[in-house]
Simulated scan of single mutants.
Amino acid sequence: MHNGVYISAQNHAKSVLQLAKHSFINRKCQNLSNSNSPCDFWHLAKNISNNFISSSFPPLFHPDGTTAISFVSKAELSSQTFAKNSTLDDSGLVPPSPPPSDYFMSSIKIFS
């Protein structure tokens, strides 16, 4: 019963967010099409480009003070930091192995 209520609430929230997003975009397009100033266009272009060039993920630093640059080093440093700060007592246990599967993936062929 609770699962159905959760899914219904989740779907409602998604539809409200989608409606708000479309309303916002339509309003921006309407404002831009009614404007005679190139400043409005460049303001919008700057806001859009900032979404792609700025990261919401802060820089990560290795213990020696150097900055993690590659995705791999960021992922490794994040996992090390998480493991170090974790309060979970695993008592040295190893995670369980996945069950065996009879499914085999066919060969992948790449054509250029």
Rank of each mutant, 00 (worst) to 15 (best):
V94G: 05
N34D: 13
I110S: 13
D64G: 08
Q30H: 14
D90V: 11
I48S: 08
F61N: 07
T87Q: 09
L19T: 11
F111S: 14
N26V: 01
F24P: 00
S8C: 15
V16E: 08
N31E: 13
N31D: 04
L88E: 06
K84G: 05
M1V: 13
S73R: 02
P59G: 09
P59Q: 06
A75P: 00
G65E: 04
L88V: 15
S23V: 07
F71G: 04
I48L: 14
S56Y: 07
A20F: 13
S86A: 08
D89T: 03
E76K: 11
K109D: 04
P58L: 02
P96M: 02
Q10K: 09
D89P: 01
I69S: 06
P100Y: 10
I110Q: 10
I48R: 13
S35N: 03
F57N: 07
F111T: 15
T66Y: 02
H2V: 05
L77C: 03
D40S: 06
P98N: 11
S37L: 06
N11H: 08
L17T: 04
G92E: 02
V5Y: 15
H22Q: 10
A20W: 07
I69L: 06
P98H: 06
N36I: 01
S107G: 04
A20N: 10
S112K: 15
N11P: 00
K46V: 03
K28L: 05
I110K: 14
A20T: 09
S73W: 00
I7Q: 10
S79C: 03
S78E: 05
L77F: 03
V94C: 08
G4A: 15
H2P: 03
F61T: 09
Y103F: 15
I25H: 12
T67L: 13
D89F: 04
Y6L: 14
K46I: 07
P100D: 12
S79K: 06
S73T: 06
G65A: 05
F57Y: 06
N36C: 06
E76G: 02
I69N: 07
I108A: 13
C29A: 15
T87S: 07
D90R: 15
P99H: 04
L93R: 12
N34K: 14
A83T: 12
T81M: 04
C39L: 12
S101H: 08
L32R: 01
N11F: 01
N11L: 12
D90C: 08
N36S: 10
A9F: 06
H22P: 00
D90N: 12
R27Y: 07
A68L: 04
S106T: 08
V5C: 11
G65N: 03
P99T: 03
I53L: 14
S70F: 00
P95K: 09
S70Y: 05
F61V: 03
S101Q: 12
L19C: 09
S56L: 09
I108T: 14
V5H: 14
Q10V: 04
V94A: 12
